[in-house]
Design a protein around this nucleic acid. Structure first.
Lengths: 161, 161
DNA sequence: GCGCATAGTAAGGTCCGCTTACGATAAGCC
DNA sequence: GGCTTATCGTAAGCGGACCTTACTATGCGC
């Protein structure tokens, strides 16, 4: 029963690593002249795996609110990396596609990402890296569940679900 | 050689987890009525372990810039959780102490933190949690090294985009 | 047609963190 | 002593990520 929180507790360490990682990624992307923010990069990558998806779907996959995604899309679109096409089946909806120009950018992101992670994980056995990733995915799943719980409690309008 | 980044790559997962964790922590702290932001909580906890330290030291431990810390201290001080006392040995410096009132707050933070992490790590073996924490600390160390390198190079960043 | 749900967005807010510039003090050097 | 340079903290202001609230346009059941 130590009476105070451990500054090396998992939560704090995780936060630290994420913050620093973001900073490092930012520097890399800036140096590489890619001209994207980390959030935009993440979004673009995710879109590439959900080619032709609706904004709501993509937002959900990214774990962000539709409005946040909308802002990123504005940027990505103005940079010519994605297109919003009307959904022929539903005129309210728009389908998101990457443009050919995005290919090089995505490859560039991947390069930076791989290289950065290579540096950052140096000194850690490959199995351990895999294990960490696996367990973090579990954490992410748990957190998703938590978020649903709390939004279920939340007194919101509609409250689908 | 897969031609595109994996959205489940370690870096992305880490970022996801951190963002969601922050959100969950925020909700918890808000619900508990503690009235601190996560950054302030982290700062307060760290101060408690460095009782009487200088701001520069604390900032370094937290991995943030002194100015950022200064802002947090303003808040924590106005809430009555910390004190800035002049350093008798150096009149430029100030030493940071927690107040008695901070005790309950720190205990509260700990409670929330422990409870949250319990939920979040559910389904993961305890050894694995420890292992993750250890390896993440290694990552953090690597990132610290990276940051030092890059600040040594001091590349003009910015790129208005 | 009417009402309500849903897709996207405009507007604006919070939090975290950074940089730049500056005043006050300390410390080194002549 | 007096000058210069380094260091501690801070005022001011910025960018990025994400959120909530409120609105438009469309779809859909009745």
């Amino acid at each position: 029963m130590s009476p105070r929180p451990d500054p090396d507790a998992l939560g704090f360490v995780l936060t630290d690593v994420a913050r620093m990682l973001r900073g490092a990624f930012e520097r890399r992307i800036a140096n590489a002249g890619l001209g994207l923010t980390p959030g935009e990069a993440r979004t673009l990558v995710r879109i590439a795996t959900l080619e032709g998806g609706r904004q709501l779907d993509i937002a959900q996959r990214l774990g962000i609110e539709p409005m946040t995604l909308s802002t990123y899309l504005d940027r990505l679109q103005s940079l010519g990396y994605v297109e919003r096409r009307p959904d022929p089946a539903d005129r309210r909806a728009k389908l998101i596609f990457t443009t050919p120009a995005a290919g090089a950018m995505i490859a560039g992101i991947r390069t930076e990402q791989v290289e950065l992670m290579r540096q950052v994980t140096s000194g850690i056995a490959e199995e351990d890296v895999d294990l960490i990733r696996d367990r973090l995915r579990q954490l992410r799943a748990n957190l998703s569940a938590l978020e649903e719980d709390s939004s279920a409690l939340a007194p919101a309008r509609g409250t689908g679900r």
